[in-house]
Simulated scan of single mutants.
Amino acid sequence: MDLLDDLLAGVRASGAVYCRSVARPPWAVRFAAPAPLSLTTMLRGTGWIARDGGEPVRAEPGDIVLLRGGAPIVAGDRPGAEPEIVVLDADRCYAADGGPSTAGHNFRLGPRTFGLVPDGSDLFVTAEYPMRGDVSERLLEALPPVAAVPARPDFAPLLDLLAVEVAREEPGQQIILDRLLDMLLVRALRAWFARPDAEPPAGYRALGDPHVGRALRLMHEDPARPWTVAELAAEAGQSRAVFARRFTELVGRPPLAYLTEWRMTLAADLLREPGATVASVARRVGYADGFAFSNAFKRVRGAAPSSVLRDAANA
C-alpha cells in the first residue's frame, strides 16, 4: 500500500452509475444529481463539459474529465448550449421542456444508454463514484472542481474496452465496469498530479524519492507501528538528520507530524464504523490508551473522537 492506494480505498467503484449518451449536434445534456466525483470521457466527437454555471472545458476523444463537488454537470457540443435532456439517474431522464414530472425511461436506447438518435455521431460516457469518509476527502481536496486530462496512450485500451462493455448486459457486467472505472481513475489521477501546476495530496510526489518514498510506504502499510524518526531513517537508508530534513522538504511537514495526521484521518473513518469505541480505534491507529488518542485527535481534527461517535450514531 502507498498513499494513492489508501486515498483510493474509499473511492473504489462498487455499483458505479454509468450513463452512455448518443447524440447528433446540436446537443446538450444536464446531469442533475451527480456524485461527489464524476468521470466523463468522449468516445466520439467533441464535447464541452462544465459544472453548472462554471466555465466549460473542451473534451476530445480519449480525454478524461474529472468533476468533483456533486454540482450538476452540463455536457454539450458547444459552450453554453442549453440542455435538451435532464438526467436524474441511471434509469430516469426527461426532456428539459417537459419538466421533472415526465421523468422516466424516455430516450432509453439500451443498457445504460440514452439519446435522441440511435446512430448519433457523438458518444460520451459519464460515470459517478460514491465517496466515503475522510480518507477519500483528502483526495477530493487535492483536485480542482474540474480536471481535464488530455488523451494518453495508456488511456486508449481501457477506453476501447469501456466503449464495448458499457452497452452490454451480461452476467458480471457491473464488476467489469467498476474495475474499468477504477483503472481509468488511477491513470487519470497519476496524469493530473504529474502536472507542474497540480497540487497533489501531501506526500504524493515524495513517493518517487527512493528514501522518503520508502518511509512513506512503510507508514501507510503499518500506521499503528510505534515509528520513530530514527527507525524510519534506518529503513530509508539515511542518517536521522538527513532523512528528517529531506522528508520535511518533500512532504511539507516532519515525519511524525505527517504520521499523526494520517492516523487521525484513518481514525475519523474508523470511528464511524458500527460498534466502534474510542479505545478500539485508538489501538488500531497505534495508541495504547484512549486518553492519549483523544488528545491527539482533538489537536489535529479540532473535535473530540466521542463527538464523531455520537454524530455517526445519530446519522
Rank of each mutant, 00 (worst) to 15 (best):
L3F: 02
D5Y: 07
D5C: 03
D5T: 09
L8R: 08
A9I: 08
S14P: 01
Y18V: 02
R20L: 11
S21Q: 11
V22Y: 10
P25N: 04
P25L: 07
P26W: 01
W27I: 10
A28Q: 05
R30S: 03
P34A: 14
L37A: 09
S38Y: 04
L39K: 03
M42K: 05
W48A: 00
R51T: 15
E60M: 07
E60W: 08
P61T: 06
L66R: 02
L67T: 06
L67Y: 08
V74W: 10
G80V: 06
A81N: 05
P83V: 00
E84D: 07
I85V: 14
V87N: 02
L88K: 09
D89P: 09
D91E: 13
A95M: 06
A95C: 05
G98C: 08
G98L: 09
G98H: 10
P100E: 10
S101Y: 11
T102A: 15
H105V: 11
F107Q: 04
R108H: 09
G115C: 06
G115I: 04
L116F: 14
G120P: 03
S121E: 15
F124S: 09
E128C: 13
P130I: 00
G133P: 11
G133V: 02
V135T: 08
E137L: 11
E137S: 11
P145A: 02
V146C: 01
V146L: 04
A147L: 08
V149Q: 02
P150G: 03
R152I: 05
R152E: 11
P153F: 06
F155G: 05
F155H: 14
P157L: 10
E165H: 11
E165R: 13
A167S: 14
A167I: 07
E169Y: 15
E170K: 11
Q174D: 14
I176M: 13
R179P: 00
L180S: 06
L181C: 10
M183Q: 14
M183Y: 11
F193T: 02
D197F: 10
A198H: 06
A198M: 05
R205G: 09
A206P: 02
A206L: 05
H211Y: 13
G213L: 09
R217A: 05
L218M: 11
P226W: 12
P226K: 06
W227M: 08
T228I: 13
A233D: 04
A234L: 12
E235F: 15
G237S: 03
Q238S: 12
A241N: 08
A241F: 01
A241V: 02
V242C: 01
F243V: 07
F247G: 02
E249Y: 08
L250H: 01
G252V: 01
L256W: 08
T265P: 05
L266V: 14
E273I: 01
V281M: 12
F291R: 14
A292H: 14
F293M: 04
A296P: 01
A296Q: 02
K298P: 00
R299L: 15
V300D: 08
G302N: 06
A304S: 15
A304L: 13
V308I: 10
L309Y: 02
L309A: 03
D311I: 00
A312T: 00
A313V: 00
